[in-house]
Computed example of a mutant assay.
Amino acid sequence: MKTKITNLQPGMIVGEDIYNLKNSLNLKKGQKLDRDMIDLILKSDITEIEIMDSNASIGFIQKTFEELPNIIDETIYNKWIDSISDLFHHFTKEEIYVSLNNITEEIYKSLNVKEYFVLNFINSFGNDSLTYHSLNTAIIVSIIAKKIEIPYIMYKQTVKFSLIHDIGYAMLDDRVINDFDSDDKNALIHNIVAYKKLQDLKATLNHEILESILYHHERYDGKGKFHLKGEKIPPLVRITQVADAYTSLTELGYTPYQALSWILKKCGFIFDPYYVGLLYEITGYYPTGTKVKLSDGSIGIVLRRNEIEFFPEVLVNNEPVKTGPDSNVYIKEVIE
């Protein structure tokens, strides 16, 4: 049904794809509205939008970019999703956390950092969106952690934390997608709720992971809720924040290029510049999915970065094209 934008409420489900160039508004059918999205809609020239009957929508699954291969084989992806979903639905059962170790080890074995990745994830726009977001965040965190060759025991702690960093939303049953700049009540309390409810599992999760859950929205400039600053913020948090933001923003409809630009603007304020730099090393200046116009006039989508980050591999008419001096083909502009 069509609903006036002044009557929109957080939790409503978008019933149509919405794109508004003026306000960089890009919403997908099936997406759940939060306060940030509603504020963007109110600032646009849109007067009403289609809203789904909440009883009719149970969510659906979609690749970020249908024409590109997944970062992980879909069968493996779904297996991990099922394990994370079990954990989120039975978060007080100690034995469930054994699956955290298993997923972490499998992610470690599945990702070869010597490769340049096609950063194409599967998302859910609906009830399971938190599960997919958590796995996608952990995959990026794993790539960063392996790239800087942190000790395996630290790697495991970091990836396990990234898998459950937002578990508080599973306890609250209502997620805020971009919660870095949100005043929504659940965004403000989800970390505290999780920290308190998981105290009985301290021996299983350990103190470092629990503290990181509590502090995972601290700001690098010290202006977060607990006023931790810089390297006083746990390293598990600082490495996970950049991946959390990237996956959240692309889930909301930001292009990967826009998501990286947003993170760069917050570098040194919300995010640790060191880990922002590492994220750029993985994605390149033009991340997977960026739509570009090449010097020969053709239009394509960036597949992955190459050795030189400014010269990525681009998919044009389903054929990979290498940009740079060897091919004499260059990216002329990004198409938003």
Rank of each mutant, 00 (worst) to 15 (best):
I153E: 12
S24R: 14
L315S: 09
E149V: 05
L198Y: 08
I308Y: 10
E307L: 12
F271A: 02
Q258S: 10
I270F: 05
K232Y: 09
E336Q: 12
H165P: 01
D36F: 12
F88V: 06
I233K: 05
K28I: 14
V159C: 07
D166V: 08
K291R: 15
H227R: 14
D174N: 14
E218T: 04
K265G: 04
A187S: 13
Y285N: 10
Y77F: 15
D244S: 09
D39R: 15
S129R: 14
V14N: 02
K146Y: 08
Y280R: 11
F65V: 11
L264K: 11
V302I: 13
V276Y: 01
A170V: 08
G289T: 09
L172D: 04
V321A: 01
I61D: 14
E231N: 14
M37C: 01
G15L: 13
Y152Q: 09
H207Q: 13
E208S: 13
E313M: 13
L315W: 09
T158C: 11
P234H: 05
S54K: 13
L111N: 06
I189S: 03
A259E: 06
Y132L: 05
Y286T: 10
D34K: 00
P10C: 14
A243N: 01
E16V: 01
K196R: 13
T92S: 13
N186E: 12
F88K: 06
Y215C: 03
V118E: 02
D82N: 15
H89L: 15
H133F: 11
L100K: 09
Q157L: 13
V242D: 01
M37I: 12
K63H: 01
E281L: 08
D82K: 14
L163M: 15
G230C: 00
F60T: 10
E106Y: 04
K43Y: 03
T104D: 03
I46V: 11
I84S: 07
Y215K: 06
E106T: 07
D17A: 04
T6E: 14
K197A: 11
S212V: 03
Q62W: 05
E66C: 00
L264W: 00
E319C: 02
D86I: 14
S124Y: 06
D166F: 07
K146S: 05
K32H: 02
Y280H: 10
K202D: 10
S295Y: 13
L279Y: 02
L163C: 12
P256T: 11
G224P: 06
D296Y: 07
L68D: 03
K146L: 11
S129A: 10
F88N: 10
Y246S: 03
E319K: 13
Y195C: 07
K4N: 08
D128G: 00
K291H: 07
E74V: 11
E251H: 12
L294Y: 09
G59F: 07
M171P: 07
V321G: 00
Y330R: 01
I331D: 04
N7G: 00
R175I: 11
I177P: 00
N26W: 11
N78E: 15
I122P: 00
V113F: 11
T288S: 12
L135W: 00
V302H: 06
K114T: 08
S295L: 05
I143Y: 00
N191S: 15
N191W: 06
T288A: 05
I46E: 03
K146F: 08
G284A: 05
L27Y: 04
S212M: 03
I177D: 02
T240N: 04
P312Q: 12
